[in-house]
Design a protein around this nucleic acid. Structure first.
Lengths: 335, 335
DNA sequence: CTGTTAGCGCTTTCAA
DNA sequence: TTGAAAGCGCTAACAG
């Protein structure tokens, strides 16, 4: 051995400096109660003097826990996921755990690699809106480490999952449009690998009951995707366009503006997620809001239950709330 | 001891299964050349059979390196920082390092805590747009771990720093406005702790040489801050409003729309950063673009130099490029 | 309340 | 090319 860790201050140095055993130092650092005030003081000042910083690696190896949870998100450039992560981060921090987040950039293969990598050193894992096949996820549950999903598999699987009411949210949007008098709407579809899209798209079928004809035009999950799919959407002559998410809707809004199509006079537009930007577009976007920080918090709760060996079952989906802004209005007859 | 790490597959299990020593297993896993093909094969199949996964903690403790770099950003909800991080992530991943990113949420105290925490287990640190006092940063340089800043201290300090030409960018914006015929502009100031703001604000003084009178109105770094400061800005009767960054400018755009002030007919608006949303607002935002992924890459380069003990000096600021869109135009006389 | 000591799982000399 | 063995820095029995 003898790596040149020359300078590093260890429990040993502190113990020596303070004239106590390493065990005592360890106890003081851990905040254990069974140390006399006097000893504690000695250790603390010695540590201070030497600038001692516990080595997290050694600690983890000894305890078998890194006190960190891995988080994988499909796309951190979507503010929605950032908000979920923040809720998760706050909750886990309160529980004494740090978060290590990785972005798969919508790539299922990258997502698998990230999971594998994280599994080597975190205590537990949360997959946000996983983009991989169901079988892969189920395999994850067989791992020794606790894991949960957020906005995960539709049907109940071995992994606990917290999610939002995607179907209800979409239907609220459709109902709003139906009440406004719309009849034909285009749904701008999201990433194929996204489960949320599957669910949101399925809602199109049910929209028929509301007297709506919904045609699906594939787009993607980004603002650019929304912009680029808008021409195709317009070809169907809808009076309203429902985006897979706010980003897509914002992209559509932009393209409509370029083409001189007025919103909502000529075409209404809706999104999904209620990201901050949606309140600031012009016109401001009608969308559906879900409690995303709450979702993150809930994810931590589920994970924590798993980590402490308690049962933990997937809770009911968090409800989605319609947010009506300026991008929707009654359709006008044309021609 | 005897923590119930019962199930875990270790080098020992694999060695036993393969009928070799743990040293050989370690060598194979490390991809060392000095192992016979036969032995290697035995080890690999044994590892496969047992589903062996190296324990990263143990590895780190033994080698003294976690092969991870800590990254602290002030505000990940600003897409600008996300892009910088992505560049950094790609480069460090290519170099075999993983990134652990933390968000200080614009809180200098939180930033210090995060740094301290990260220092316990990462190999090196990069601070993006640090919000803490110069002295604190200089102290960081005294740490055993290599560290660099991105968009850091103005004057040269002990920490290498890669940055962008904030001053040049602002002046390009002012020159553009001056050429358009503007005379009086309001600069919507950013977060007090942000160094970028100091520099961008100082550019206001130089704008006088361009025939521009620039008055500073404090705002902040968010879209809400921009919105809320707009009324105060308007009180100065400017023909143009220059936001601290795109977020602030987008907020201003929104408020102007609410008040029925036309952009750019009545007031021109500019931002800084060229985040994706800025190309999609209406009107699209005139701003300044900086090579942010490149900035991240450069940060890794600097850090890597430090880590490998090479000199490393702060490079020249990356240049900022004016992006003219629809939010700026010639002023109209009023009254 | 305190110290001694045996590991956590892995890497890396060192000698064979 | 291979194995034995000594740690990396810390924690947690265990004995006192």
């Amino acid at each position: 051995m003898s790596r040149s860790n020359s300078g590093s201050v260890t429990v040993r140095s502190v113990a020596q400096e303070a004239g106590v055993s390493v065990a005592t130092v360890s106890r003081v650092m851990a905040g254990a109660a069974n140390v006399s005030a006097e000893r504690r003081e000695q250790v603390l000042t010695a540590a201070q003097r030497l600038g001692y910083q516990p080595n997290q690696m050694a600690r983890s190896l000894a305890t078998g826990s890194s006190r960190s949870v891995g988080v994988v998100v499909p796309n951190l450039s979507n503010p929605y996921f950032y908000d979920v992560i923040r809720g998760l981060g706050r909750a886990s921090a309160a529980g004494g755990y740090r978060m290590v987040v990785s972005d798969s950039m919508e790539d299922p293969a990258a997502e698998r690699d990230l999971v594998e990598d994280l599994l080597r050193f975190v205590d537990a894992l949360v997959l946000v809106a996983p983009r991989q096949a169901r079988a892969q996820l189920d395999a994850l549950a067989a791992t020794a480490k606790p894991a949960v999903t957020l906005i995960g598999p539709h049907a109940a699987g071995p992994l606990p999952d917290a999610t939002v009411d995607n179907r209800g949210g979409m239907l609220a949007l459709y109902q709003h449009l139906a009440e406004l008098g719309h009849r034909r709407v285009v749904y701008l579809g999201g990433p194929a690998a996204a489960l949320q899209n599957t669910i949101r798209q399925e809602a199109a079928l049910e929209a028929a009951d509301l007297g709506l004809e919904v045609v699906v035009v594939p787009a993607g999950g980004t603002i650019e995707a929304g912009r680029d799919a808008t021409d195709a959407a317009l070809a169907h002559e809808p009076t309203a366009i429902a985006g897979y998410n706010d980003l897509v809707a914002l992209g559509a809004l932009h393209r409509l503006g370029q083409r001189g199509v007025r919103v909502p006079e000529d075409v209404s537009v809706t999104g999904f997620d209620d990201i901050a930007f949606s309140g600031f577009s012009s016109p401001a976007l009608t969308t559906v809001a879900t409690p995303r920080e709450e979702l993150g918090r809930l994810g931590w709760e589920l994970l924590h239950e798993r980590m402490t060996g308690r049962p933990s079952r997937s809770p009911a989906p968090l409800s989605a709330e319609l947010v009506v802004r300026a991008s929707t209005g009654p359709p006008r007859g044309r021609g």
